[in-house]
Design a protein around this nucleic acid. Structure first.
Lengths: 280, 280
DNA sequence: CGCGAGCTTGATGCCGATCAATGCATGTGG
DNA sequence: CCACATGCATTGATCGGCATCAAGCTCGCG
């Protein structure tokens, strides 16, 4: 979240994707209220044939900028999908690292934990975003990835990705850009956590969220939060009460309409101002 | 800084390097007090032949795990050094991205800025650490890298690195690990900024610093800070007064001996306890 | 209907920010 | 060499934003 922060509102890299418009968060992201179970059921591996070349996320995901030859190769690599139900983990800290995952549908959070129990949400991932980059460093994952709604991911075996990217320059380049972008994003979050006040943090968070939804063809104005106040708070370095109060404040000021997890952005410019006009 | 935080004190990846021992921060890192000038003088490019294969940092830097063939290739790639004097910038946010840099001697900080002027130190880099990974994502740097003492870096032309890493699996792997490690480190900093109190932050910071110095053969007990209280504060999301007060508190408690920038760690275990025992 | 998870809202207190003064080391110019 | 300026660090006094503690509320579900 939060690219270089200079570009909070208009990330340079947001792919071109026409935005259909209003109908509040499309039903595509369904949030049926099902029991939130953390039980680790036997993992469903669905060897459904999925072709990157025909995926409607290809302009957002790993294949960005690849030509048909390369894409055909990538199709061979990304052969399986995996379904992850709400509340289930895709991987946990300590798990051995084998694959990266591209979110196909659904929504995830990643979080790290310190041994004394505290944990910190380090990001929220939606369609087209990659999960698991943390695992490359030590061949073990260093965070948990948890589905916040029923989701499916494309499995990208890492060894094979390395192999393929030795052959295809464009794929190599794209992969490196994705890793670098994650680093830049993280720096933006550090800036947020290190120097912004509660209102600014929440405003920045909301703007970032709507941008990313918009890039995926959703309305920029209406959205449904996939995460709890506590998860937002963890991500932003705030307590859930503060998040809640700040939502209420924004509502009082006419910036937002808040009904539990249903949000409507009424004054985007007003939110943007909050992020910029700090001290003054 | 701050790897996965689980491993704050003993990072798995710290290379084996015998530690010579006591003599307080070796004079190698000299800090002659020269005028702190920010003027951008004509950049000195020193085409000194530097061989990774004979560099005493090769067990800490990009060459980790490479065999002699690969190393010979890397030597061709990394042909130039660049001197960066204290206060000068190696690169700035917005500069076009061409190369990565490996710190050879000296000490750097990197910082990002929001357009309203605030800025945030995102890291401190010492010998063997890589600078510039942020630039890959957009072909422009997204942060400033500033030398905190007279330093020299090895210039690693990025295009050539990509090329070479297509040829040499080990180099590719090592490079990916370095990027991933940076991501993991960033997550650790987020945990710190999002959930720790001032004392814990400073303790974690000091422990991390001494670890890294130790990995480079310096004493774990005595060190000279290369950065100001304000820079430490920026990195840790605190004000300089808080940093100063916390140093004093640690001193009162017998954990440290603080004399301006000269530090002596008196009770490492005590600091470690602070990081773990939070709310407890 | 009643339970529970998640959300809202109020009252209070504390940690760290802010404001301000002083100290200390270094460098400069008379 | 001293007086002074400058940059950085320390320390105190005060203030405020957010955490904490504590009720209630809402909504979906068994």
């Amino acid at each position: 979240m939060l690219m270089s922060v200079k570009t909070l509102q208009f990330p340079k890299d947001s792919p071109t994707c026409t935005t259909p418009g209003e109908p509040a968060n499309r039903p595509a992201c369904r949030l049926e209220t099902r029991p939130m179970m953390n039980a680790t059921l036997p993992i469903k591996i669905e060897p459904l044939k999925v072709a990157c070349s025909s995926c409607n996320l290809r302009e957002l995901c790993l294949p960005v900028g690849l030509h048909s030859d390369d894409l055909a190769q990538l199709d061979k690599l990304v052969a399986t999908r995996r379904q992850v139900n709400r509340g289930d983990t895709l991987f946990r800290s300590g798990d051995s690292f084998q694959s990266l995952y591209a979110v196909r549908t659904g929504f995830f959070k990643t979080c790290v934990a310190s041994e004394d129990g505290r944990d910190q949400v380090t990001g929220f991932q939606m369609a087209g975003e990659l999960l698991g980059l943390d695992g490359i460093s030590t061949d073990r994952h260093s965070c948990d990835a948890v589905a916040l709604e029923d989701s499916s991911v494309c499995v990208i075996p890492y060894e094979q990705l390395e192999e393929l990217s030795r052959e295809f320059t464009d794929l190599q380049r794209q992969f490196h850009k994705i890793m670098s972008r994650e680093i830049v994003r993280d720096h933006g979050v550090m800036l947020l956590l290190g120097s912004m006040r509660a209102e600014e943090r929440l405003a920045a968070f909301l703007l970032n969220l709507t941008q990313r939804l918009q890039a995926r063809g959703f309305s920029a104005a209406a959205l449904v939060l996939r995460m709890t106040r506590e998860e937002i708070g963890s991500y932003l370095g705030l307590k859930l009460e503060t998040v809640s109060r700040t939502f209420s404040k924004f509502q009082d000021e006419g910036l937002l309409e808040v009904k539990q997890r249903q949000l409507r952005i009424l004054d985007q410019a007003g939110l943007q101002k909050l992020v910029n006009n700090t001290a003054c």
